[in-house]
Design a protein around this nucleic acid. Structure first.
Lengths: 333, 333
DNA sequence: AAAAATTTTGCAACCGGTTGCAATATTGTC
DNA sequence: GACAATATTGCAACCGGTTGCAAAATTTTT
C-alpha cells in the first residue's frame, strides 16, 4: 500500500541503498543520483518510514515524557513548551500519564518497548528513585523539576527549592510581616520539603516562629482551600507562603469567602508564577520558577545523553526570582 | 544489547516462532511451550520490541493527537482524559502541538512517517479540511470537538454548538435579562460561529436585539478581557454570553476591575464548565460540555475505524446542559 | 490399534529501512 | 595518458519481530 524504498529505487533506476542514502545525512550520494531519487520520490509521494528506520538504527527520536500533575495548569505551560521544543529538534514526546501510579516498573517497561531514545521525568512530586529506575534500565534520563539527592545518580535540571523558600521568607519579612504561616504542597514531594526547609529555616534564623505549618494534600486548588480553612483557625495570621500558585489561589478564595481581605488583612505569596498568577482576580505575588529554561535545558541534556550515555552526572540549577504583584501589603517607606 | 526473540528461543529451546506466538494473542501455542518461553523470558527480562512488531504487523498502537489550544486549561482536562483512556486500551497518543500552524501537510507527513494507526483532531478551532487531510492520506481520523459540515466526510464527535448557543440564550431570557451582549471566541472557529448562530438566532426569535456582538481574538483570558473592555463601552449591558469559560473569566475580571459588580450589575454565562468554573472567585454559571463523553467516544470511534476503515460516516453528538452557579441574578420568583 | 481430525511446531519469507564492504566510477596528479 | 587517490554505487546481511505453510505431534474416532 504505502510507497517504499524499493518503489522509489525502481522508478529512479538506482539501488535501494542509493535511496536510503539520499535520506540519511552524512551519507555519500552524488548530486546526480540524489536528483533522480528526489524526483522519483516526489512523483510517488515517498516518505521514509520512521519505524523501519528505528529498527535499523536503534534510534526512535521518541522521548518519554513522564508527568503526573495533570490537574495543575502549570503543566499546560510545561507541556506546551516540551512539545514545541522537542518538535523543533525533530524529536517527539511519548507522554506517560502517571496519575495515581507510583511504581516505575510499568512505565519503564512501556518505554523500553517503544525503545525511546531518552526519558524526561517532569515532575517534582515523584521520589528520585523513580527516575533512577529508567537509568537502571539503561535509558538516558533527566529529572526535570527534580531534586539533587545524594546517591541517586540521575541528571537533574531544576531549581534550588531551599533557596527559593528562603526568598519567600525574606520577602515576607521585608514587608514587615511577623505572624507568618506556611502552607506547603503535599508533604511527600521533595519540592515541598525543600521549600519548607528553606522557608522555615530562614524564619528561624531571623527569630520568627511561624504561627502555622501545614501541608495541602496535593498541588491543587481544592487542596489549597481545604488547608487554608485550617490555617484560618489560627488567630491573627498575617501572611501565608503557599508552596504553589494553585494552592495559593484556593487559599485566597477560601480567605476571601470568609470576608477576610487580601492583602489588607492577610498577605499571600505563591510559587511558580504560572500564567494565571497575573489574573486580575488574584494578581499574585509569587516566586517565579524559570520553567522555560528548565525545559529547554532538560531537552538539551537528554539529547546530549543520547549521544553520550556515559556523560558525567550533571545538576543544572536555575535561579528563581520574586515577582511582586498585589497580594502583599505595600512596603512601608 | 537488548534481549531479543532469538535469545529467548535459544534459552527455551524452541523456535523463534514459538516465542513470537507466546506474545501474540490468538496464536496457537501449547501450554508446555508457553511455560518454557515465559520462564526463559523472565530470566532474561525479555519484552517484545514494539518497533519490530509494528514493522511486521503494520500497526503501531500510536494515535496521533492533534491540538492547538495549549493555553486553555480545558485542554489539560482533555489531555488528561485522552492519555489515560488511550493508555487503558494499550494505545499511546503521539501529540502534535499545532500552535500557530495552519497547514495540515506537515502534520500529515509526520504522522504518516510514524505510521500512526489513527488520528484524533481534538480542537474546535481548526477548519474541517484540516481533519480531512488525514483522511485523504488514508488514515482513520476522528474530529473531536468538531463541526459536522456537509461535504467534509470526516467522522465527528462533539456537541451541537448551535443548540448550546440557544440554551444560553434561553437561560438569560429566563433570568429576565433584556440588554444582552454576545462575546464569542475567535470568529474563525466553527464552534464560535455555531454558538453565535444558535444564540443570536434564539434572541431574534424572541424579539430581543443584542446590545453588542463581539469576538475575542482567541479562546483565552487576556482576549476575553480585551474584548470585554469594548463591550463595556456599550451603555447598560445587563448580561453577557461568553463563548468560553476562560474568556468569561477574563471578561469578569475586566468588569470587576471597573468596579462593576457580578452578578448584581452584569450577569455572565460561560461555556465548557472547565474545572476552574467552580472556583470561588468566579463561581461561573456556564453551559457544560460533556468533555468526558466526547473523548471516550472519539477514542472508541477511532479504534473502530482502525479495524474497519470503510465504516460509514458517523456523527456523534452529545447534549450539553446549563450549570447554574452564581454569575446570573437569581430567577425572579 | 489404525485412521482421521486437530493442534502445535519450525522453516523461511517478509515488513522497510541501514550500512560495511568490495567493486566501480570519477577526479586529480605528474 | 597512466596511475593514484577519492567518491559513489550496489550487494547482501541485518535490525527484531510476524505469519503462511507444510511437517510433526497429539488427540479423537472407529
Amino acid at each position: 500500500m504505502a510507497v517504499t524504498l524499493k518503489d522509489v529505487a525502481k522508478l529512479a533506476g538506482v539501488s535501494r541503498s542509493a535511496v536510503s542514502r539520499t535520506y540519511t545525512d552524512g551519507a555519500s550520494v552524488s548530486d546526480k543520483t540524489r536528483k533522480k531519487v528526489e524526483k522519483a520520490a516526489r512523483e510517488l509521494g515517498y516518505r521514509p518510514s520512521l519505524i523501519a528506520r528505528s529498527l535499523a538504527t536503534n534510534r526512535t527520536k521518541l522521548i518519554g515524557l513522564i508527568a503526573n500533575n495533570f490537574q495543575n495548569p502549570i503543566f499546560l505551560e510545561v507541556f506546551d513548551l516540551y512539545t514545541r521544543a522537542l518538535q523543533k529538534r525533530g524529536l517527539r514526546p511519548l507522554i506517560v500519564n502517571l496519575t495515581d501510579e507510583t511504581d516505575p516498573e510499568h512505565s519503564v517497561q512501556m518505554l523500553r518497548q517503544y525503545n525511546v531514545d531518552g526519558v524526561i521525568v517532569a515532575t517534582s512530586t515523584l521520589r528520585p528513585y523513580f527516575a533512577k529506575a529508567f537509568k537502571d534500565a539503561n535509558m538516558p534520563v533527566v529529572h526535570a523539576f527534580g531534586r539533587a539527592e545524594v546517591g541517586t545518580d540521575v541528571h537533574v535540571v531544576g531549581i534550588d527549592n531551599q533557596a527559593c523558600g528562603k526568598m519567600a521568607a525574606e520577602t515576607l519579612l521585608l514587608h514587615g510581616y511577623e505572624r507568618i504561616a506556611f502552607l506547603g504542597g503535599p508533604e511527600s514531594a521533595t519540592s515541598t520539603q525543600d521549600r519548607a526547609t528553606g522557608f522555615l529555616g530562614h524564619l528561624r534564623d531571623q527569630g520568627v516562629v511561624p504561627v502555622d505549618v501545614r501541608y495541602a494534600d496535593a498541588y491543587g486548588y481544592q487542596a489549597g482551600r481545604d488547608a487554608m480553612r485550617e490555617v484560618l483557625k489560627v488567630e491573627g495570621v498575617e501572611a501565608v507562603f503557599c508552596g504553589d500558585d494553585l494552592i495559593c489561589m484556593g487559599a485566597m478564595d477560601e480567605t476571601r469567602q470568609k470576608g477576610i481581605r487580601v492583602p489588607d488583612d492577610i498577605g499571600f505569596i505563591g510559587f511558580n508564577d504560572m500564567a494565571m498568577a497575573q489574573w486580575q482576580a488574584y494578581n499574585l505575588t509569587t516566586v517565579r520558577q524559570p520553567t522555560h529554561d528548565i525545559i529547554l535545558s532538560s531537552i538539551d541534556l537528554v539529547a546530549t545523553l543520547v549521544e553520550e550515555p556515559e556523560k558525567s552526572l550533571e545538576l543544572r540549577i536555575f535561579p528563581c526570582e520574586v515577582v511582586e504583584r498585589g497580594t502583599l501589603r505595600p512596603l512601608s517607606q
